[in-house]
Amino acid sequence: MQSLFVPFFHNYSHSFLTLTCPSADNNHLPFSHQFDVKCCYDFKLPKFCDRIRSCHVVDGKSSSSTILTSKHHHILKPLTMTNLNMDTIHNDSPQLRVAYQGVPGAYSKAAANKAYPDCKAIPYDQFEVAFKEVEQWKVDRAIIPLENSLGGSIHHNYDLLFYHNLHIIGEVYLPVHHCLLALPGVRKENLTQVISHPQALAQCEHTLKNKLGLNVIYEAMDNTANAAKFVAANNLRNTAAIASSRAAKLYGLQVMVHGIQDNPKNVTRFVILARELKIPHIDKPFKTSIVIALDKGMSLLFKVLSVFALMNINLTKIELRPYRNIPIKLRAESNNVSNTSHHFKYLLYIDFEASIAEVRAQNALTKVQELTSFLRVFGSYPMDMTPLNPACHA
Results as ranks from 00 to 15, higher is better:
287 K>L: 00
374 F>C: 03
289 S>F: 05
266 N>D: 14
98 V>W: 10
298 M>S: 09
264 P>S: 11
240 A>D: 05
70 S>T: 06
7 P>N: 10
65 S>E: 07
144 I>K: 07
7 P>Q: 08
169 I>L: 08
310 L>I: 01
330 L>M: 09
87 D>G: 03
219 E>G: 04
265 K>R: 14
76 L>K: 14
152 G>W: 15
231 V>W: 14
32 S>C: 04
79 L>N: 05
239 T>Q: 12
326 I>H: 13
279 I>K: 01
376 R>V: 01
22 P>D: 08
322 P>M: 07
308 F>H: 07
285 P>S: 03
358 E>G: 02
231 V>G: 12
304 V>Y: 14
367 K>Y: 04
248 A>Y: 08
31 F>I: 01
362 Q>V: 00
61 K>Y: 06
356 I>C: 03
282 I>P: 00
230 F>C: 03
155 H>G: 03
126 Q>E: 10
241 A>Y: 10
3 S>M: 06
37 V>C: 12
353 E>R: 05
190 N>G: 06
144 I>Q: 07
384 D>Y: 02
393 H>M: 13
72 H>W: 15
371 L>D: 06
174 L>R: 04
53 R>K: 14
75 I>T: 12
306 S>V: 02
334 S>V: 01
181 L>Q: 06
266 N>T: 04
275 R>C: 01
208 L>W: 04
86 M>H: 11
245 S>R: 15
145 P>C: 06
80 T>L: 13
97 R>T: 00
214 L>Q: 10
185 G>M: 09
49 C>H: 11
250 L>K: 15
308 F>Q: 04
347 L>F: 09
59 D>L: 12
233 A>H: 10
290 I>T: 06
260 I>K: 07
325 N>H: 13
372 T>G: 09
314 N>D: 01
78 P>R: 15
37 V>Q: 12
68 L>W: 09
313 I>W: 07
223 N>L: 03
170 G>V: 00
54 S>K: 00
364 A>F: 04
160 L>I: 02
267 V>H: 14
47 K>M: 03
161 L>I: 02
302 F>W: 08
243 A>N: 12
142 A>H: 05
272 I>F: 08
86 M>T: 01
232 A>N: 09
89 I>P: 00
144 I>H: 07
243 A>T: 08
47 K>H: 14
252 G>M: 08
288 T>F: 11
274 A>N: 07
139 V>Y: 05
335 N>V: 00
19 L>G: 02
258 H>K: 14
212 L>K: 10
70 S>G: 11
195 I>F: 12
222 D>L: 12
331 R>D: 05
188 K>I: 02
